[in-house]
Structures are given as structure tokens and as C-alpha cells.
Design a protein around this nucleic acid. Structure first.
Ligand code: MN
Ligand code: MN
Ligand code: ZN
Ligand code: ZN
Lengths: 138, 138
DNA sequence: AATTGTAGTGCAACGGAAGTGCATTTATTG
DNA sequence: CAATAAATGCACTTCCGTTGCACTACAATT
């Protein structure tokens, strides 16, 4: 609990009750989280608050956004000390076509790509799709 | 004109007037196309028709869908003989943060990635974002 | 050529998800 | 405590993708 408050404060996010709950919820999840997930988990709270919490978290580097190709924005907590802005720090994501869950593969960085003359890369997104660990074990 | 009809027929798509026009429009474009682009280009035609044309094209392997992270689905013609379904045939895409256009880099295949035990990849999407050739030349 | 069936097109409406303006509540600080 | 700033809640909007159903054009069949 205290660690969460500290983590948020460190990142310049005021640790309100709601924010701590959302952080906790995300920390306990092994998969990337969509706004609707949080909405379902905290039915009493207003969507807007949850939405803005995610945006604040993102902006302050508490979470990173994940575009897994489903058309729904997902989010996951950043590693401590991660620097999502840096191109090197970008890891790949895996989306399971079976259970529909998306996970961070933080160990797997996006390889360097040689671009044609004139192209300057600032950011990258690599998503693999297929069958996840859990689903293939069954 | 005749080539377009042939191409469509080959792929099991009946070459209606509208479809030929849309194909032509996409062939003349150097960048990936969104539904709204086509909508603007063919204001007389109905959205639904254009939408379904794209879906038909996609399903029959005439175009491939591109998720460039903007939240808007884009499409581009497939290379002749391309096999989008095959994992090896997947090329990367580049989205320009300046002009907002997305291009296929068909020469640049997505590199092979070692996944952790249990994960089976069936598909992949790699998008680089930054400044494109045209924009960096100015 | 008329009939029948199928595929394509148009209109209208729906639904999910992201986002915004503004009022209200809660926290901070002097 | 008053004054101020930040967070939350409600209502409403926009954008995009999608679907149901009616209508039309086309192709095959008799
Ligand atoms: Mn991640
Ligand atoms: Mn492409
Ligand atoms: Zn799975
Ligand atoms: Zn550009």
C-alpha cells in the first residue's frame, strides 16, 4: 500500500484512493488492461475518472499504452525505472487469439530495423499474435 | 483497366464498376488508405458499399489491413503473388508523425522473434513511427 | 425474351469506445 | 478558517466500424 503511494508520488501523481485502487488492480493483473476492464472492476466509480486516471498514469510514466490491434486501448504498468520514451526500451507484446488477452514480454526488446534513406524512427510497436502460454498448455 | 478486372476476377471478386474505381484509386495511392479517404474520393457512393468493398478485397487477398496505431483501419493493395497469411510474408509499416501518412515497406520483412516457451506466433504487426522520407526532405 | 436467383448497392440505424465541458466535491495551503 | 487547486462525476459528443433490410443490377436458366 505504502509502496504504491510512494510510486505514484515519485512520478508526480497524487495518490488518491481511486488511483491507488486502480494501480493495485493493474499490479495484480498479469495481462494488459482496457478501460472497460477497470470499469467492470470498479462499477461505482465514473468512467471519466477511470479514463482520466489512465491518461494521467500514462502521461506520468506510470503505465504505458498498448495497441494490440484489437481496436481497444490497453494499458500495463511500467517496470520500475523503465523509460518507455526511449526507443531501446520498447518491448514487444503478445496478443492471444484464443483467450484474447495481451501480455507484455518485457524481456523481448524490439530489434533494430534498418529503414530506407530518409526515414527516421522515433517509436515502434511490435505485436505478435497467436496462442499464449496458458492456452497452448491446455 | 483490363488488368484490374483480371486481377479482381483472379481473386474471386466480381469486377463491378465501383470496385474497379476503388482498386484504381488505391493503386494510384502511394500510402495506405482509410475508409474515410475513399469516402471523400467517391462522395456519391454510399459508405456501406465502400466499407464492404474493402472487406471483400481483404477477404479475397486483394488488399491487406494495416493497423498503424492511429485507431483508424487502413488498407493497401497486396503485392501480386503476396501471401499475407504466411508469417514470412509480413512486411513492416511506417507511420509518419508529421504528415500522418502510413506506408508499406514491402521490402522490409518482420524479423523472426524468439518467443518464450509455450507461445506460438501466427501473425505479427510491426509499425515504426517517426518522420517519413518526404517530410524529412523538407 | 421472360423468369428466377444471386450478388451488389443504398439507406438508416446501432454500438462501442474515446474524448470534452462544466458543475461539484475533495484536498491542499496560506 | 478562507482561498485555491486538483480530482471526480454527469451529460453529452464524436468518430468509426458494423449490421439489417429493402432495392437494384446482373447472370443464369428455362
Ligand atoms: Mn508492455
Ligand atoms: Mn502493407
Ligand atoms: Zn491465451
Ligand atoms: Zn510524413
Amino acid at each position: 500500500m505504502k509502496e504504491i503511494e510512494q510510486r505514484l508520488t515519485e512520478n508526480g501523481v497524487r495518490p488518491t484512493a481511486m488511483r491507488i485502487l486502480i494501480y493495485k488492480y493493474m499490479a495484480e493483473s498479469e495481462v494488459a488492461i482496457a478501460l472497460t476492464d477497470i470499469e467492470n472492476a470498479f462499477a461505482k466509480a465514473d468512467r471519466t475518472t477511470l479514463f482520466r486516471t489512465l491518461k494521467t498514469f500514462e502521461q506520468k510514466g506510470v503505465v504505458h499504452q498498448i495497441d494490440d490491434g484489437t481496436g481497444v486501448q490497453k494499458y500495463a504498468l511500467c517496470e520500475t525505472g523503465c523509460n518507455c520514451e526511449l526507443e531501446q526500451d520498447l518491448h514487444l507484446h503478445f496478443h492471444c487469439n484464443n483467450c484474447n488477452e495481451t501480455v507484455c514480454l518485457t524481456e523481448h526488446k524490439i530489434p533494430n530495423i534498418n529503414l530506407p534513406e530518409g526515414y527516421v524512427a522515433e517509436d515502434a510497436n511490435l505485436v505478435l499474435k497467436g496462442i499464449c502460454e496458458k492456452c497452448s498448455a491446455q
